[in-house]
Simulated scan of single mutants.
Amino acid sequence: MTPTPPLLGLLLRGLRGRCPRCGEGRLFDGYLQVAGECPACRLNLAEHDAGDGPAVAATFILGAGIVGPAAFLELTVAPPLWVHAVLWGPLVIAGTLAVLRPLKGITVALQYRYRGLDEPPRLGGL
């Protein structure tokens, strides 16, 4: 059995979108679809489901990073509403695309470390 890498190494593999076990194979098929298995070490990745965790984390990160500057701009300059739409709309979309994949990679890597896929299902499907 392959030893689990240290936590920092595991997180870096998730950030880079690499297999949590070997660090060589791609974690994703496409932009956010988790690969069925690692092409390098044949780790079954299909059972790792990130769920809504990465989206919630992205919401909190982008919310904190955008609402503050938007409120500051509104309170100091009070621009028309269209200025906010032009500034913050594309920034939210770009920010979401930038952080969602690394957050999903980290989530799958943490699942690999802490969740045994051979465990029996728990009550409630958790």
Rank of each mutant, 00 (worst) to 15 (best):
123 L>E: 05
10 L>G: 09
46 A>T: 14
68 G>W: 07
23 G>T: 02
110 L>A: 05
16 R>S: 15
1 M>K: 08
51 G>D: 12
105 G>E: 02
19 C>F: 11
74 E>Y: 12
30 G>W: 00
29 D>N: 12
117 L>C: 07
111 Q>A: 05
42 R>I: 10
54 P>W: 01
14 G>L: 02
93 I>T: 06
124 G>C: 06
11 L>D: 01
62 L>A: 10
74 E>A: 14
47 E>Q: 14
81 L>R: 08
67 V>M: 08
99 V>E: 07
24 E>D: 09
109 A>E: 01
47 E>N: 13
42 R>Q: 15
83 V>I: 14
25 G>E: 08
2 T>S: 15
92 V>C: 13
41 C>F: 05
97 L>P: 01
59 T>K: 06
67 V>P: 11
14 G>H: 01
42 R>L: 10
76 T>R: 10
104 K>Q: 14
4 T>F: 05
51 G>P: 01
62 L>C: 07
16 R>I: 06
26 R>I: 05
47 E>R: 15
46 A>H: 07
53 G>T: 05
45 L>A: 15
100 L>Q: 10
56 V>W: 10
98 A>G: 11
63 G>Y: 15
21 R>Y: 00
39 P>M: 13
36 G>W: 15
120 P>W: 03
112 Y>V: 00
125 G>M: 05
29 D>K: 13
90 P>V: 06
62 L>P: 02
46 A>D: 09
50 A>L: 05
121 P>M: 10
67 V>Q: 11
10 L>K: 03
12 L>S: 01
121 P>T: 04
75 L>M: 12
91 L>V: 09
114 Y>G: 08
21 R>V: 02
100 L>N: 05
14 G>N: 06
63 G>E: 14
22 C>Y: 07
76 T>N: 04
14 G>F: 03
107 T>A: 07
31 Y>I: 07
5 P>T: 01
7 L>V: 07
118 D>C: 11
50 A>Y: 02
120 P>E: 13
35 A>S: 09
88 W>D: 03
74 E>N: 08
84 H>G: 10
116 G>S: 06
90 P>D: 07
103 L>T: 02
52 D>V: 09
48 H>T: 13
30 G>P: 00
22 C>M: 07
89 G>C: 01
26 R>C: 07
20 P>H: 04
103 L>I: 10
23 G>V: 01
26 R>E: 13
42 R>P: 08
68 G>A: 11
97 L>H: 09
20 P>D: 06
78 A>E: 08
30 G>E: 04
120 P>R: 11
40 A>D: 13
104 K>N: 04
102 P>I: 00
89 G>R: 00
7 L>W: 02
42 R>G: 13
1 M>W: 12
113 R>I: 02
61 I>V: 15
5 P>K: 00
91 L>Q: 05
85 A>F: 11
35 A>D: 11
52 D>I: 06
81 L>S: 10
